[in-house]
């Protein structure tokens, strides 16, 4: 983590500059304008580039543990996408996405797909295919491992399909760099408030935290 580490950081920073430049050059000449889905939280929208979940980007989500609201966070946007005639896919989810709960969150199940890929290669391939397909508005993937190069591939696929890629990663990944446009570390406190640490956010300041109050679980508990 000395000289070579610093070199990697510089070169990846340069790569990112180039990508940004390329994106600027493409702007207006190619492809549809990005769509933005409000996250459902005003505080979060305020820090996200474009004011919400922006199509054509990869968002990395790094929850500290299962069951802290890592899926609920996306539900308002996913519900909206399925109501605008676009589809949502979950690739290799760790558990069964429970249909009665999805319905309660307003998802149209006829626009919802589960892809049970096993190997890391199949998961990334399926994510790339669905992101690239214009019929999908959002793709959620749980890859067992993912490298920078693969994040870039997904990024290109998301741009081509004008869709949003949500990639769930282990919290350890927050310490590494990644070309993803938005990187969020998720943790909850003892009463269930979800705290979102902005690890990286293109065009916004990283290092901020946004809190989202617990919703369903505690609401029904009262």
């Amino acid at each position: 983590m000395s000289a070579s580490g610093a070199a990697t950081v510089t070169s990846s920073a340069r790569a990112e500059k180039l990508e940004q430049l390329a994106r600027l050059c493409r702007n207006g000449r190619e492809g549809p304008p990005p769509r933005v889905e409000p996250s459902g939280s005003v505080n979060l929208d305020a820090v996200l580039p474009g004011g919400g979940w922006q199509s054509g980007t990869i968002v990395e989500l790094m929850p500290m543990s299962d069951g802290i609201g890592e899926l609920r966070l996306l539900m308002p946007a996913l519900a909206k996408i399925t109501h605008s005639e676009r589809h949502v896919a979950m690739i290799a989810p760790p558990y069964i996405p429970f249909a009665p709960a999805l319905l309660r969150h307003g998802l149209r199940l006829e626009h919802f797909w589960i892809i049970r890929a096993q190997s890391a290669a199949d998961i990334l391939w399926s994510a790339e295919q669905t992101l690239r397909c214009k019929s999908f508005g959002a793709v959620l993937a749980w890859p067992s491992a993912i490298r920078d190069r693969e994040v870039r591939r997904l990024q290109l696929a998301a741009e081509a399909g004008n869709s949003i890629g949500f990639v769930y990663r282990s919290p350890n990944a927050a310490r590494e760099s990644s070309p993803a446009a938005v990187r969020l570390r998720l943790q909850a406190d003892a009463v269930g408030q979800l705290n979102i640490d902005i690890v990286k956010c293109r065009g916004a300041r990283a290092g901020m935290s946004v809190g989202i109050a617990p919703e369903l679980a505690t609401a029904s508990a009262e």
């Binding site: 005639e85 589809h87 996405p97 249909a99 009665p100 999805l102 319905l103 199940l109 006829e110 919802f112 797909w113 589960i114 892809i115 049970r116 890929a117 096993q118 199949d122 391939w125 399926s126 295919q129 669905t130 690239r132 397909c133 214009k134 019929s135 999908f136």
Partner: peptide
């Protein structure tokens, strides 16, 4: 769009197996 969707789903099912791609219902 639905043709493209069908094509994408077909390709994934062809690679992963037909039962590995599905929806859910309540």
């Amino acid at each position: 769009q639905s043709e493209e969707l069908g094509y994408t789903i077909d390709r994934i099912a062809a690679r992963l197996g037909e039962n590995q791609v599905h929806g859910v219902q309540a």
